[in-house]
Computed example of a mutant assay.
Amino acid sequence: MRVTFLGTSGAVPTTERNPTALLVEREGDRLLFDCGEGTQRQMMRFETGFDVGHIFVSHLHGDHVLGLAGLLQTWDFNERDRPLAVHAPAGTRSRVEQLIAPTGEQPSYPVRIHQVEAGETVLDREEYEVRAVDVEHRTTAVGYALIEDDRKGRFDREKAETELGLEPGPKYSKLHRGEPVEHEGRTIHPEEVVGPPRPGRTVVYTGDTRPTESVIDAADGADLLIHDGTFGDEHHDRAEKTAHSTAREAATVAREAGAKRLALTHLSTRYTGRGWQLEEQAEEVFDGRVFMADDGMRVEVPYPDSDREFTVEMLDRAG
């Protein structure tokens, strides 16, 4: 699973940071979370690909949605015919419709606007789901959790062959699917050669929010929590007033949730050039597992039982 940060700034862009957007790639699926101004250019710049079927909007503040019209229009120019689903908080349908067609023209391809509420499964796939998460902001808002299903246990081929005398073939597949097989007058049960289910991965994106118990619950054991970290300690009052979080508060949420990694995003322009200060404050609570997200940062999230490591790399920022 790969997460590319397309925009990591707070309410307004800077020369280094675009407004909020991030793209998650999973086994060929591309999912776009929020779509701030200039998102389509960031997708080109960091070569994420444009084959997106679902856009998940956390809330309708401009820095999270003003890129929608341009992106949808570009798809129109490129003769897209694949349907697009835009998921947004309940009660916002008419405003989303106005956002995606500011010229008064509707896209030539089907666009479905799906209004979502916290706790709802927004997207249900065979191997994963995307669930809306309750957050606390100063407007109607949700976060999103991408949760993979448990995977099949490992198949013990050596035991199947040497101890049970099973040759490779269809019986292997049946056992791995959880079905018993008959062999030489006896029944072989799946648990004899298949290990316990292996956990999938969980990535949680909060959008803009105060620290909440609902996010802690959603991020329980998450492989990556992407949390509002707009302010530093010195602007805690401002964070409360505007319904954002400080980096330290985000780290506390990650610690209480037992998350494996925390990405801070939505950095206020007050900290331009010194985001490392917020990272240091978060490190005091969630040591060694925090990073400040930057535009063009790509994160590889391995399976929990994989021998691969969690990696963070910066893509070419030229252009």
Results as ranks from 00 to 15, higher is better:
G143S: 10
G143M: 07
G143D: 11
G143F: 09
Y144G: 02
A145W: 09
L146F: 14
L146Q: 00
L146W: 13
I147R: 15
I147A: 13
I147D: 13
E148L: 01
E148A: 08
D149G: 12
D150E: 15
D150G: 03
D150T: 08
D150V: 10
K152G: 13
K152C: 01
K152T: 03
G153V: 06
G153A: 06
F155Y: 07
D156G: 04
D156F: 10
K159N: 09
A160M: 06
E161S: 13
T162I: 13
T162E: 15
T162C: 05
E163L: 04
L164I: 05
G165R: 03
L166E: 06
E167D: 14
E167H: 07
G169C: 08
P170E: 14
K171W: 09
S173K: 14
S173A: 15
K174Q: 15
K174M: 15
L175N: 02
L175D: 00
L175G: 01
L175I: 11
H176E: 15
H176V: 14
R177A: 14
R177Y: 02
R177S: 12
G178N: 02
G178M: 04
V181T: 02
E182L: 12
E182A: 13
H183E: 01
H183N: 03
H183R: 06
H183V: 03
E184K: 14
E184T: 09
E184M: 05
G185F: 05
R186G: 03
R186K: 14
P190V: 05
P190E: 08
E191A: 11
E191T: 05
E192Y: 08
E192D: 01
V193S: 07
V193I: 12
V193H: 11
V193G: 10
V194E: 00
G195Q: 06
P196F: 08
P196H: 07
P197R: 10
P197I: 04
R198Q: 15
R198F: 05
R198T: 09
G200S: 11
R201C: 09
T202K: 15
T202F: 07
V203M: 02
V203K: 06
V204E: 10
V204G: 12
Y205K: 02
T206K: 12
T206I: 01
G207V: 04
P211N: 09
P211D: 07
T212W: 11
S214W: 07
V215R: 04
V215I: 06
D217Q: 09
D217T: 13
A218E: 06
A218G: 00
A219S: 04
D220L: 12
G221A: 05
G221Y: 04
G221H: 06
A222M: 04
